[in-house]
Design a protein around this nucleic acid. Sequence first.
DNA 1: TTTTCTTGTGTGTGCGCACACACAATTTAA
DNA 2: TTAAATTGTGTGTGCGCACACACAAGAAAA
Lengths: 356, 356
Amino acid sequence: MNKRVTIKDIAQQAGVSVGTVDRVIHERGRVSAEVKEKVLQVMQALDFEPNLIASTLAFNRAIQIGVLMPQLHSDPYWDLPLLGMRRAQQSVRHYGVGLVEQMFDLFSPQDFKRSARALIDQKPDALVFPPIFLKESLELLDHCAEVEVPTILVNTDVEHPQVMSYIGQDSYQSGVLAGKLLSMAMNGAGKVLLLNLDKETTNAKHLMDKEHGLRHFLAQKDENSFTVLRQDVEDFDNPERLDSLLKSLLQQYVDIQTVFVTNSRAYKLVEAIQGLSQAHLPILGFDLLPNNLHFLQMGKIDFLINQNASYQGYLAIKNLTDYFIFKKQMPRVQHLPLDIVVAENAAYYVQREQGN
Amino acid sequence: MNKRVTIKDIAQQAGVSVGTVDRVIHERGRVSAEVKEKVLQVMQALDFEPNLIASTLAFNRAIQIGVLMPQLHSDPYWDLPLLGMRRAQQSVRHYGVGLVEQMFDLFSPQDFKRSARALIDQKPDALVFPPIFLKESLELLDHCAEVEVPTILVNTDVEHPQVMSYIGQDSYQSGVLAGKLLSMAMNGAGKVLLLNLDKETTNAKHLMDKEHGLRHFLAQKDENSFTVLRQDVEDFDNPERLDSLLKSLLQQYVDIQTVFVTNSRAYKLVEAIQGLSQAHLPILGFDLLPNNLHFLQMGKIDFLINQNASYQGYLAIKNLTDYFIFKKQMPRVQHLPLDIVVAENAAYYVQREQGN
DNA sequence: TTTTCTTGTGTGTGCGCACACACAATTTAA
DNA sequence: TTAAATTGTGTGTGCGCACACACAAGAAAA
């Protein structure tokens, strides 16, 4: 109930003007050592907290956040973080935070490079992007360092001094979690078919980490009973190929009991093997794409691990706002929860994706 | 990049003063129909959005939110929502939102009533509480209606016109989810021991809903193979009693394969049966209490369903802030996700509880 | 010694909005 | 018909802070 302490109060108590207090707060110099000391002392004594509302109003500066993301609607997974960023921007627009979006072709390093240049040329105050192409991303980070643009990475981490924060999943641990869930579905023994439905150029690190996590969990659980068969499929957009491939694998390895699709493309597998009638083959995939959710509800997919892709984008923008407007620090790494989603609890997560 | 539209711009375009624009915006009256029309038209045309930062600064009013919660540290579960509220208050304190906390004895309706009175006497702008005692809660809501204090319920919903919003879990669905997880742990058949570790006076509705959810799921999954044995234990603070009870139950019903503890007190069960050495008995419980987490990591508890108790509190305060400061609407019911927590993904949720 | 630069401090304006107040033009009551 | 109340509109101040500017006093340079 007691009125808030303002810089005016500080000034009065310290016997100086508000201008001097302001100089102390912002360390603008031009204050004698003794006066500065006195002011700091009074601030401490009165437990002064600057009014951030007034501060942002007076500050009156627009922050432009550069966003470099894969083309919208080119891949359903990559829509999620971008939509999350836009939602976040909406919720902080009053602080003068805006997005400068620049899209690139998900499968073209050249286009990534070109888009990056175009974005930097617009001199954003910060940059957010997923380092899908390692080499080009490192170049971009070097460039950011030159022009002093702080950067947040999403989806994949990269070690680089210019990276202020990484927001994303812990791929290794998601592999471990997959191991746990799949082993539960396997009554004690069996083979896991690990499917990498991806082009070689992208995400290699990711998928490897997941594989390691899975293998580690299964080995530690029961070294002899569980085995993993890995299969990489670059031609994942071709249902016939996928279908025949899977058929032959199941024929060849009769002990395949479950399938682990290492990214968000589990639905492609389900679509491809619709015809394949046989005993239920438990499938675990990632992310709450509409297609995945559909098959989850139908019982064709058993588990989805939600990597909170849209929340990654949301947090990136939120954190940058906190950083610029509220001068808050940011953790170097922010791992988001790995939600276990089954048909019975999917609704809440879907709702959350939309909302916040 | 284009400068934001202000009321000054509107005034200029409409050929009136800012005062008039202000009157139109806040519907303070005293504006002729034609001028009002004109102003609204210009606002529409220029896509005017009031600057909420400036607005809150000028509004300059403190909001006091009354919080009626069980005594801190009387039960570990109930600490969570309160701590969530305090965290939320910290993050919105700059908007002049404060909490007025009033605690009551978790097991005393009389004390609840008394505390409620004391809180209302302080004339808060809104009220948040869990309607643990139904009769007393309805009385309180009636009282709130009289003095026009909008109210948010957490943890349990109650139908009453004065309830602006309910934030909490969907108990029935959490029972369904428990059924899913337990049936996975049971290879096709077996008995679930359902343990209600609670006093009769509290939460009855809750626990019944969970039981119904569980039974419904199991029946629909396989009517004949799964059975449920329910046991209510009011004396849950007595380990010896719990221990001997469980021993005799396991002896009597040899087909008990899993245990479903319907609230956050799974750790009490584990503590009681430490000695009981037998084949692993999968246990499912609720909520991320330190003790529960400890046993989860040790493998004594297999699943925890996280009802996001602390986030419930957080959201309650956040939503009220949005309501009072930003004039946002609130959904009547907000169900939070039911997170499936196992040893392999617990860390993230624990971290989130602390953070946001 | 005079001039220029540096340092320390205070004053004033504006951010965009909310709200109180002044005051003219009506309208209604006396 | 005159006084009082009502309606419509504009002006001014303040919310708490950021920042530009003014200006005095002393230090350094000429």
